[in-house]
Computed example of a mutant assay.
Amino acid sequence: MSQLSYLFGSLLELIYNVIGDYAISIIVFTVVVKLLLLPLTLTQTKSMKSMQLIQPKMDEIKKKYQNDPDKQNQKIMELYKEHKVNPLAGCLPLLIQFPIIIGLFNALREPVKYVFGTEAAYKIADTGFLWVNNLASPDVILLGGISIPFILPILAAITTYIQSAMMSPKGGKKDPTQTMMLYMFPIMMLFWGISFPAGLLLYWVAGNIFQIVQQYILSKPSKAKEAS
C-alpha cells in the first residue's frame, strides 16, 4: 500500500509541477486515475448489466425452487451458462481496485509524506480552493464548538448517492442490503467529511462526477435498444 501511495503521490506531484495549482491538480489527477481504471470499470459495468438482465429469471427460479436449494443452484448455474454470465466478473475489478483506492486515499490524506516530501513545500502548494482556505483541513463550519459539514462533505454525500443510484438494478426485486447501502453510504460520507481533509473530499467529488457522466454515457446504448 505504501509503495502505491508513493507512486500516486509522484503522479500528483508531476501534475502539480505542470499546472501549478494544487486543487486543480487534484481534479486533473482524479480524471487521469479514472481513465487508467476505465478498462476495469467497463468490465464491472458490463457484468452488472448482464446480471440485471437475467435478474427477473433468477427471481423466478428462486421462488419456484425455494424449498429445494440444490435444484435452485443448478438452475441458476444453467441460467448463467445460457446467457454467458460470469457472476464473479463484477467482483474481480473491485478486488483489483481496492488496494489502488487505499493507495490513493493515503496519498491524499498525507500529501506531505507521499506527494511533496516536506511541510514547507506543501504549505507553498496548498493555497486553498474557492471557499476552502487550505486543503489539509476539513471543510466544516463551527457552530457552538461543534463541526458541521460544509459544501464539500454535502457534495460528496449527494454525488455518492447519485452515482450509487445509477448503478443500482432497475426494476425487479430489490436487495434489502443494497437498498440500505444506497442510503447509508452517502450518510457515512457526510459524517466522515467532518474529519477528512478537504483535498481528499475534492478528489472524491471529482471522481463521483466523472463516474456519473461515464455511467450516463454508457447507459445511452442500452436505452436506445430498449426504445427500439
Rank of each mutant, 00 (worst) to 15 (best):
97 Q>F: 08
126 D>Q: 04
84 K>L: 12
77 M>K: 10
54 I>D: 12
88 L>F: 15
123 K>L: 10
56 P>H: 04
92 L>D: 02
63 K>V: 10
99 P>C: 14
82 E>V: 12
100 I>N: 03
123 K>H: 09
68 D>Y: 00
98 F>C: 07
106 N>W: 14
113 K>P: 01
73 N>M: 15
58 M>W: 10
111 P>G: 06
69 P>I: 03
56 P>W: 02
107 A>P: 00
93 P>N: 00
71 K>N: 09
99 P>Y: 12
56 P>C: 01
123 K>Q: 14
117 G>N: 03
75 K>R: 14
73 N>E: 05
78 E>A: 09
61 I>F: 08
71 K>I: 13
58 M>S: 04
74 Q>Y: 06
57 K>Q: 13
86 N>F: 14
80 Y>Q: 07
112 V>D: 06
109 R>C: 03
87 P>M: 04
109 R>G: 14
70 D>A: 15
91 C>L: 12
128 G>Q: 08
69 P>T: 01
89 A>T: 11
60 E>A: 14
80 Y>A: 12
123 K>G: 02
73 N>S: 13
119 E>I: 11
53 L>S: 13
108 L>A: 07
69 P>Q: 00
54 I>M: 11
118 T>E: 02
72 Q>D: 03
75 K>E: 15
105 F>H: 09
114 Y>H: 06
128 G>R: 00
87 P>S: 08
57 K>C: 07
99 P>I: 09
124 I>W: 03
87 P>G: 10
105 F>L: 13
113 K>F: 06
76 I>W: 05
99 P>M: 11
81 K>A: 15
118 T>I: 12
58 M>N: 04
119 E>H: 13
91 C>N: 10
71 K>G: 14
79 L>K: 05
71 K>Q: 13
122 Y>P: 04
110 E>H: 11
53 L>I: 11
58 M>F: 07
121 A>F: 12
127 T>H: 05
127 T>D: 06
129 F>N: 07
125 A>M: 05
123 K>C: 00
125 A>V: 11
68 D>P: 04
122 Y>V: 05
107 A>Y: 01
60 E>R: 08
76 I>S: 02
113 K>C: 04
88 L>R: 00
90 G>Q: 06
116 F>R: 01
127 T>V: 10
54 I>S: 09
122 Y>F: 14
91 C>G: 10
119 E>Q: 15
83 H>L: 07
122 Y>L: 09
72 Q>P: 08
114 Y>I: 07
96 I>P: 05
79 L>A: 09
84 K>F: 11
84 K>Y: 01
75 K>F: 12
99 P>R: 12
75 K>T: 07
72 Q>A: 09
85 V>F: 10
61 I>S: 07
126 D>I: 01
111 P>Q: 05
58 M>D: 03
111 P>H: 08
64 K>N: 14
93 P>Q: 00
115 V>M: 12
80 Y>L: 14
